[in-house]
Nucleic acid binder design. Structure first.
Lengths: 270, 270
DNA sequence: AGAAGGACCAGTGGTCCGTA
DNA sequence: AGAAGGACCAGTGGTCCGTA
């Protein structure tokens, strides 16, 4: 009732400018992007932990990463950006998903049907770029302006043609990007170490938590929100739940260790 | 799957300490608070503007506010806090809602079955207090910490016994509170003026928009978010949609007036 | 097996409209 | 009529789990 003469402003609209500006090296055959599909599954999901997941906070020393040298088995890609699978057989529009990440050193380009970690981090910078565009549009339309990478930003990215960006992936690796932003030296060392040991991406990802907890403790008294906010490219990302929990746990542990010192010796937490 | 050994922390719990600390003067008879009721209405709401609402951006000069002097017609209230209706007849737990607001001068206590504007503004300060408590609890549990008055805060307030606080009411008058925070002089003058003219609360509420638009223009280049963030008690409140729209419209108007000056004269926007 | 991401769900911001 | 607020709804943050 109060909107008055003001809601002539439509909701979104989204200029299609940025399409295909990013992402040149796409799957072979050029089958159309699937875009909005909304496949309605009728399964009754969410049966609450029927399979008792094993927790893997420490990295296990297995999974000897094969480093496959089948370089140009696909088309002539190798340019710069990410690569997708599902390009080969019948061009009837089958599953189109990005190649999995592997642990690469800084500067190293992943060969074969893999994507490297520099590319992963580049995706975060692209999201930031999309956020800046969304903010600019919001401001000029007088809408409320997001400060974080929200659903709206992911939707915008998708509409702009960056279909390889999606929320679950970006949320999954945020803390890895955080370490990259906050301590590039340590991040690079970790990448080299895990590549050398032949660890898989999951193990490397797990290993990124600990250095961040240490940083939050050392510089921000375990306030991981303050840690994220201290960096301009990082502050637009939500703090992942698990990292928040780890910082909280570490603080509690440190506090109780300080309150009740052991009988014989000094405890070292890091 | 990642939660690990950390989710021993339950969700809320809410110590019942604050109950009845606020709000002494309650309805007569002392019938129990209705609390959580969740009456399921089966009506098909949202038939989208069947009744064409008239827009009321300018205050109309009618409604000669009767200022009823039936002071102590109810019980012996008159202490300090807000008053509720529904105390009279059959004590079978009927509708319990706050008395409507009337336009009062600063310092003036509303008489009869009315609440004054000092009381209204006091509710905002109470909400801030509840937010501070929610933040404190969140921080000590390692949860993410709200910076604004969210649903969680309203829920907390209700559980703490402040059933007279609710989201629609608080959102409805935010901009009035904003003016009170940002320019108490102007706010007080407006209250005196509207009381004197015998305007109702709705008219006064409408009149609070304009001075805020002027403030946002003058001090923040029409950035009303910046205006809200400039005040510590105000920055915890979401900017109301209509105020945001008004600021946007005013900026556009000012911009086009500046770009295309009229043939004979200088335009004054304020 | 390890990993990418469609799609789901509980709880949010926003406010309409049946109620008093 | 003017006003208070229960309750609804579209779109969010978060991430599970069917998929490749």
């Amino acid at each position: 009732p109060d909107s008055g003469a003001l809601d002539a402003l439509s909701q979104e609209g989204l200029s299609e400018e940025r399409v295909q500006q990013e992402r040149e090296a796409v799957a072979s055959g050029g089958e159309a992007w699937e875009g909005h599909k909304k496949k309605k599954t009728t399964a009754t999901r969410r049966n609450k932990k029927t399979t008792p997941k094993k927790k893997k906070n420490e990295e296990e020393e297995d999974g000897e990463e094969e480093e496959d040298d089948d370089d140009d088995e696909e088309d002539g890609e190798g340019e710069c950006e990410g690569k997708v699978s599902g390009g080969g057989a019948a061009a009837g529009g089958e599953r189109q998903r990005e190649h999995p990440f592997i642990v690469t050193e800084p500067g190293e380009v992943a060969r074969g049907k893999k994507n490297g970690l520099d590319y992963l981090f580049h995706l975060y910078d692209q999201c930031r770029d999309f956020l800046l565009q969304v903010q600019s549009i919001s401001r000029e339309r007088g809408h409320k302006c997001p400060t974080k990478v929200t659903n709206q930003v992911f939707r915008y990215a998708k509409e702009a043609g960056a279909s390889y960006i999606n929320k679950p992936k970006m949320r999954h690796y945020v803390h890895c990007y955080a370490l990259h932003c906050l301590d590039e030296e340590a991040s690079n060392a970790l990448r080299r170490g895990f590549k050398e040991k032949g660890e898989n991406v999951g193990a490397w990802r797990q290993a990124c938590y600990q250095p961040l907890v240490a940083l939050s403790a050392r510089h921000h008294g375990w306030d991981v929100d303050a840690l994220f906010n201290s960096h301009p490219r990082l502050c637009i990302w939500y703090v992942p739940t698990k990292l928040r929990q780890l910082c909280h746990l570490a603080r509690s542990t440190a506090a109780s260790a300080a309150a009740q010192p052991p009988h014989g010796g000094i405890p070292y937490l890091f």
